[in-house]
């Protein structure tokens, strides 16, 4: 198997941290000059049967302001167990973490503490479950209006459907 990371400067050096030390690791990296939080996402390893089910990936970049050069990148992998999927928020380090954490919460159900109340970013508030988890079926619908199943009725005429409109 090839080792792609070495030949891939966008990916950067791989590091790992335990959930309790993740915030300190990020703060230390920021003090060392990694000034941009490029990306933050999570992977659900349920289908592969790995023990800590989730892995949150932070991707940092050291950007030189005057020359626009990328002076190096690093990616921090944090393994988060299913039982207590909570991390300390890095909102105080980078304000963009607000939306990225909300997305991770929305899609994977990984919570964050030490930040204002977290709410969904992409899905609506009434949505139940976290769609990017491997155990969420892709076509399980929770419509706000229209037929409850979200499917087309047999006779797709408007008179038989009669949607109940719910407003806030």
């Amino acid at each position: 198997m090839s080792e792609p990371a070495a030949a891939n400067p966008c990916q950067g050096e791989r590091r790992e941290a335990v959930p309790s030390a993740a915030f300190d690791a990020l703060r230390e990296l920021k003090e060392r000059g990694y000034n941009v939080l490029i990306d933050m996402t999570a992977v659900d390893y349920l289908a592969q049967g790995r023990e800590p089910r989730f892995e949150v990936v932070y991707r940092l970049m050291k950007l030189d302001l005057s020359s626009g050069e990328d002076r190096g990148r690093v990616e921090l992998h944090v393994k988060v167990p299913e039982g207590a999927p909570v991390l300390r928020s890095c909102l105080s380090l980078w304000p963009i973490a607000d939306w990225l954490e909300r997305e991770v919460w929305d899609m994977f159900g990984i919570g964050f503490v030490d930040r204002p109340k977290i709410k969904r970013l992409l899905m609506y508030e009434e949505f139940k479950g976290h769609p990017l988890r491997k155990d969420y079926p892709i076509a399980k619908r929770q419509p706000l209006i229209g037929p409850a199943s979200g499917e087309r009725p047999d006779n797709p005429s408007f008179n038989t459907v009669r949607p109940a409109v719910k407003y806030e």
């Binding site: 198997m1 090839s2 990371a5 891939n8 990916q11 990306d39 990616e75």
Partner: peptide, 9 residues
């Protein structure tokens, strides 16, 4: 594609 992880920008 072999197992692994990659990020490309």
């Amino acid at each position: 594609v072999p197992a692994g992880e990659a990020y490309v920008a």
